[in-house]
Amino acid sequence: MSYIRNVELSDAEVLVEIYRPYVENTTISFEYETPSVDEFRSRIENISKKYPYIVMVEDDEIVGYAYAGTFKGRKAYDWSVETTIYVREDKKGGGYGKKLYLELEERLKKQNILNMYACIAYTDNEDGHLTNNSMQFHEHMGFRLIGTFKKCGYKFDKWYDMIWMEKFIGEHKVNPDAVTKPEI
């Protein structure tokens, strides 16, 4: 049985282990070193104050997580978020990413968020460190490509591109509803 719940600070150790292979073996993350459990707890705490941070649990084990974060730190950007998702390597392709993103989107809509953005590593030549599966996943989830930064990330002795994708999830009207805090 699987379900989605809000993240807890006690989940940090498991989330670090889900994230670790993405940092150490891929350019999906442009971080060079895996954050400590304390750093991850701090990230969870800060993000959860303003946005949804959720985990997918199957058979009492966390198999993935997703969250939204500040897109830009200016008031005019309040209705926009940057999204992040990671699924345990041995659970990829099981539909967990889709379920997590759909739940994240619903929670963001309840907060009156209008725009979801994803910053994704991209390559013209897939290799052992990066495929373009993340871009394809986001396309499948209704995102569209809006920009490319060429050769802006350097990792594993190679330059990689970064793309931005967006998805509108609400109506852009004059005097939009104020953004609210996430449900707990």
Rank of each mutant, 00 (worst) to 15 (best):
D11P: 05
D11T: 04
A12C: 08
A12S: 13
A12Y: 09
V14L: 04
V14R: 15
V14D: 08
V14S: 10
L15R: 07
L15Q: 06
L15F: 04
V16A: 15
V16Y: 14
V16I: 15
V16K: 15
V16P: 12
E17M: 09
E17Q: 15
E17V: 09
I18L: 03
I18Q: 01
I18Y: 03
I18G: 06
I18D: 07
R20Q: 07
R20N: 06
P21Q: 13
P21G: 14
P21R: 13
P21V: 12
Y22D: 13
V23Y: 02
V23S: 01
V23N: 02
E24L: 14
E24P: 02
N25W: 00
T27E: 10
T27H: 11
T27K: 10
I28R: 04
I28G: 07
S29D: 05
S29L: 02
S29V: 08
F30G: 05
F30E: 00
F30S: 05
E31Y: 03
Y32P: 00
Y32Q: 10
Y32N: 12
E33R: 05
T34M: 00
T34K: 01
T34F: 00
P35N: 11
P35V: 13
S36A: 03
S36P: 01
S36G: 01
V37E: 12
V37P: 06
V37W: 10
D38N: 08
D38T: 05
E39N: 07
E39G: 03
F40V: 04
F40I: 01
F40L: 10
R41G: 02
S42A: 11
S42E: 15
S42Y: 12
R43Q: 13
I44P: 04
I44A: 01
E45V: 00
E45W: 05
N46L: 11
N46P: 00
N46M: 11
I47G: 02
I47W: 00
I47H: 00
S48V: 08
S48T: 11
S48A: 11
K49S: 01
K49T: 02
K50R: 10
K50G: 07
Y51T: 00
Y51K: 02
P52A: 07
P52V: 08
Y53N: 06
Y53T: 06
I54L: 11
M56V: 06
M56K: 13
V57W: 04
V57M: 02
V57E: 12
E58M: 04
E58L: 01
D59S: 09
D60Q: 13
D60Y: 09
E61G: 00
E61C: 02
E61K: 13
I62Q: 13
V63W: 01
V63G: 07
G64L: 09
G64C: 12
G64Y: 07
Y65V: 12
Y65I: 12
A66D: 08
A66W: 03
A66E: 05
Y67F: 14
Y67Q: 07
Y67C: 15
